[in-house]
Nucleic acid binder design. Structure first.
Lengths: 341, 341
DNA sequence: CTGAAAGCGCTTACAG
DNA sequence: CTGAAAGCGCTTACAG
């Protein structure tokens, strides 16, 4: 409220607010303000610890130096770690991040987009929910950069940064096959979105290439919004329903966590009795006994790429969308390779 | 940029912007605007999907409906989970959250406070670093509510929401003693801040009350900013240096994680050979084999309390600080009680 | 080389 | 019952 304004400085320096504005925005040279005046203004500004009011500036220029970040769940390790990387990167460019979680709920996502819009964020980083394609299209029309993350809409031309989910799933499934596992199931989320579709397709393609059996009874889809208890119940019911099952692939980190919990409560021995692999890495997977094989996403790289694309688009909007697909890496651990410690 | 403004509505309705503003801010009655005009304006506004420009409103009223959140590390499970709760709670009151991580670095914290200040956030939620007391005092002078979390400054009168760190540490240490462990060490962070001090004091008090040996060689302090490798090296060096050590208390969740990793790489058997307990809960602690005993903080309750205090202060600033101390809960698991599964 | 003035989109005391 | 006008703190075309 009671901040120092450009007027205060102008008064003290005996010049107009215009001149102060020019100097403080580094336009002294361009506007040919004399060295003397320029120095004087700088000195006064730093003495008074002047900080430009971002609201006023934003109202005038339309730029708020704020990025809107919409993730599925900020409490999830994957998104939280990514949020940290993006915070750091954005900070380097003087941007702050306003966040929100969709919980994979389209209505919540729409609400978040709306709020971010009338808060005039300069750009959006969005983990879209299903049916959010219309809103993403509309957003593009506002000429504010939008970068999708984790997933995208194949029929919408937009910037995005994702990993090769198909290849990741293919590799980890092939790895199970190579280890000698014969009957492999997958537990995934009830979702037709591209990232889950690709993981499922990578899984089935690998089974086919390794001449392993595949049918619908090997696929379990669970709705995202269930509680932990319900997830565990569903997973246990599924796993015990398959005769001869000897390995299972959990398609996200939280599914992997629920999966471990479920398998342990069944009393099965992970590794020898049932091979276990998961998408995404987690402290739990690294330190569990036995440790859990996973397909890890390169979090730092993803975060840096997202912000880089955003900054490029803010500075020089490009005609064609930047679509970056990073490679996830297979981390082989004891849960699929009992020989390992 | 090209948004609908109050002027557009005024033009279409054939009234002044003033009237539109009154109606849209629910002051129609108070300002005795006729039902007719009021209805008409409402209709036009919703037809045009009018969204008030928050910048303009903020510039005028000084309210941005934004909360600044400063945590130690948004990627850390504890802070990320809390961020989720606070996001939800703030949302109920129409507030959005701008976040930043200090990495326990005072300079970063100061920078964050400064940025949040000139972005005109309405209120602050701060996990203070050491030596941030001056800045917190100054902030109070601006009459924007500030709630400290996780820790506070004993000599600064401020709102805060924390857990009883002393009692939590006391209880978990007593539990170890009751289990028959005789030589108990603590691994903590190099920090004189209240939360770590209280945990250390709770630890030593419990040892004393149980007539167990205590001396400085049983306390290891590690600087926060070390890398994972270095943490593990330090922990291993420390644990192997104590003759007859049979239990260890890790004073934060990340220390607990590093600790488990270290102990395992030493080849020690957690539980029978060395009792292990940690502050904070984590998926890893719940699902590790053996599972890890911990002092869990009531995350949802903490988050709700923080936002509640903030909202009360925003609406009716109170004369005296609200200082809330919640009870953490002891969760006994196999790492300190080998009998457990 | 420097400044007066308009305007970004609101809110609100004041006037009638 | 309603509106004209000022002002929040900036930036920027325009003028000199």
């Amino acid at each position: 409220m009671k901040g120092i304004s450009i007027k205060d400085i102008a008064k003290q320096a005996g010049v107009s607010p215009t001149t102060v504005s020019f100097v403080l925005n580094g336009k002294a040279k361009e506007k040919r303000i004399s060295e003397q005046v320029s120095k004087k203004i700088q000195k006064i500004a730093s003495r008074l610890k002047y900080k430009p009011n971002q609201l006023a500036r934003g109202l005038r220029t339309g730029k708020t130096k704020t990025i809107g970040l919409i993730v599925e769940d900020i409490a999830n390790n994957f998104f939280a770690s990514l949020a940290k990387v993006m915070e750091d990167e954005a900070d380097k460019h003087g941007y702050k991040v306003l966040y929100g979680s969709t919980e994979d709920n389209t209505e919540k996502a729409k609400g978040l987009l709306e709020v971010l819009k009338y808060r005039q964020v300069d750009a959006y980083i969005v983990t879209p929910t299903k049916n959010l394609d219309k809103e993403i299209e509309q957003l593009k029309a506002t000429s504010k950069p939008v970068v999708l993350m984790d997933r995208y809409f194949p029929h919408v031309s937009s910037h995005y940064v994702v990993v090769d989910n198909y290849q990741g799933a293919y590799n980890v499934t092939s790895h199970l096959a190579n280890q000698g596992y014969k009957k492999i199931a997958i537990v995934t989320i009830t979702s037709d979105q591209i990232q889950m579709k690709d993981r499922l397709e990578g899984f089935t393609a690998a089974l086919k290439d390794h001449h392993l059996p595949f049918n619908k009874s090997l696929v379990k889809k669970i709705p995202f919004e269930l509680e932990r208890e319900a997830f565990n119940t569903e997973i246990k019911k599924f796993l015990t329903s398959i005769k001869g099952l000897d390995a299972v692939f959990f398609a996200t980190n939280y599914l992997g966590i629920y999966g471990i919990e479920s398998i342990r409560s069944l009393g099965w021995e992970i590794g020898p009795q049932i091979g276990v692999v998961s998408f995404d890495d987690h402290d739990l997977f690294r330190l569990h006994s036995p440790s859990i094989t996973c397909v890890a996403q390169p979090i730092t790289e993803i975060g840096k790429n997202i912000v880089e694309v955003l900054m490029q688009e803010l500075n020089h909007p490009s005609a064609s969308p930047q679509q970056i697909v990073l490679e996830p890496s297979l981390i082989i651990r004891a849960s699929s390779d009992p020989g390992k410690k």
